[in-house]
């Protein structure tokens, strides 16, 4: 069983994560872009791709899986975002990545690291993108192309874009030339979430509240996802995506491994909430909205499918080194 730890304080977990990202990105899977596109479009007609037919890396499969999840649009949000499913779906998503990393590392006890961004959010804005995290020994440059460290060897091949299809600027995933990871930290929005923001989400007594949309102003999920409070949005998880910028912007955001450092911390905050408030989830089995209930099958492209009920207790899968989240 893996232990998930703070990337800044556990050099072994940091190095293993960087090595595993590089390994999954440089090893080509047996899946081509056209095979992945065909499989997804058979189930999600909204999903659009264009560009080169190329062999995808194992890492690319997570990129396309995430992008496709957003095109399975539901009456509330989509099959991974803007509704109650947000937290269990990303836990499900990262469980497979962690298991694949364990295999490429040959270490069954490997656990993903997390980035405690709320701690950095306590720093002055000008220092937040100049921390040790954005250095050659960690994840590389905060702005522009990532050249330094192991992630400087990674390339993106799938990118969320807009394309003129003859009638409209349509949203597509483009399969194109291999490019370096791009970041633009602190330019779109100057500051990361801070510990008072985390505390506000932690103090919510309910996991989620009807009508379970991105518009609800209470509930742990919507505050942690970052749509509420409306005047402060983007907050918490969303704010980290926007603050990092670059490849973290579109639906292909797992292109940047900082995606997983962010989501591992989001998962840690949810775990801390459940540890304190109980392993409660809403909506209950069979309840609306479709695709968000406790017994909904979570959008799965690779690996075993799961339901939220199967990921509320992950004590046999992994643990965190600390649930002190603020």
């Amino acid at each position: 069983m893996g232990t998930r730890s703070n990337i800044l304080f556990n050099p072994a977990a940091r190095d293993a994560f960087l090595d595993a990202c590089r390994a999954l990105d440089t090893q080509l899977s047996p899946v081509t872009a056209s095979q992945a596109y065909g499989a997804i479009r058979a189930a999600v007609p909204n999903f659009r791709m264009r560009g080169t037919d190329q062999q995808l890396s194992y890492y690319d499969l997570f990129v396309i899986w995430h992008a496709a999840s957003m095109e399975n649009r539901l009456s509330v949000g989509n099959s991974a975002h803007s509704g109650p499913i947000f937290l269990p779906w990303h836990r499900h998503f990262m469980l497979l990545l962690e298991q694949w990393m364990q295999q490429v590392l040959g270490d069954d006890d490997y656990g993903l690291p997390y980035w405690d961004w709320a701690a950095d959010g306590e720093l002055p804005a000008a220092q937040q993108f100049r921390t040790q995290l954005f250095s050659a020994g960690f994840i590389g440059e905060a702005r522009g192309s990532v050249f330094s460290g192991p992630l400087g060897e990674m390339r993106t091949r799938l990118r969320g874009t807009r394309f003129w299809d003859g009638t409209r600027w349509a949203s597509v995933v483009e399969s194109g030339p291999a490019l370096r990871i791009q970041r633009d930290a602190g330019n779109d929005i100057a500051t990361l979430p801070d510990q008072s923001d985390v505390r506000r989400a932690f103090d919510q007594p309910e996991y989620d509240v009807p009508p379970y949309t991105a518009g609800v102003q209470h509930g742990h999920r919507n505050l942690l996802e970052g749509w509420a409070p409306a005047g402060d949005a983007p907050a918490l998880h969303n704010r980290v995506h926007v603050w990092v910028g670059g490849d973290m912007g579109p639906g292909t955001s797992p292109n940047d491994p900082i995606f997983f450092l962010n989501h591992c911390n989001v998962d840690r905050i949810w775990e801390a909430w459940m540890d304190d408030k109980g392993r409660r989830y809403r909506p209950a089995a069979g309840e609306a909205p479709t695709g968000h209930a406790l017994d909904a099958v979570m959008f799965t492209l690779i690996g075993p499918a799961r339901r939220p009920s199967g990921v509320l207790d992950v004590s046999e899968q992994y643990t965190y080194d600390s649930l002190d989240v603020f």
Binding site: Q35, A43, N72, R279, A285, Q317
Partner: peptide
């Protein structure tokens, strides 16, 4: 809400199922 711990039997091996890629979802 029914959160029994998931056993590691659900462990997914690299390449498992990649020859017949298929979306599963509600």
């Amino acid at each position: 809400s029914g959160g029994a711990p998931e056993r590691r039997a659900a462990y997914a091996k690299l390449d498992e199922g990649l020859d017949g890629l298929e979306v599963r979802a509600t």
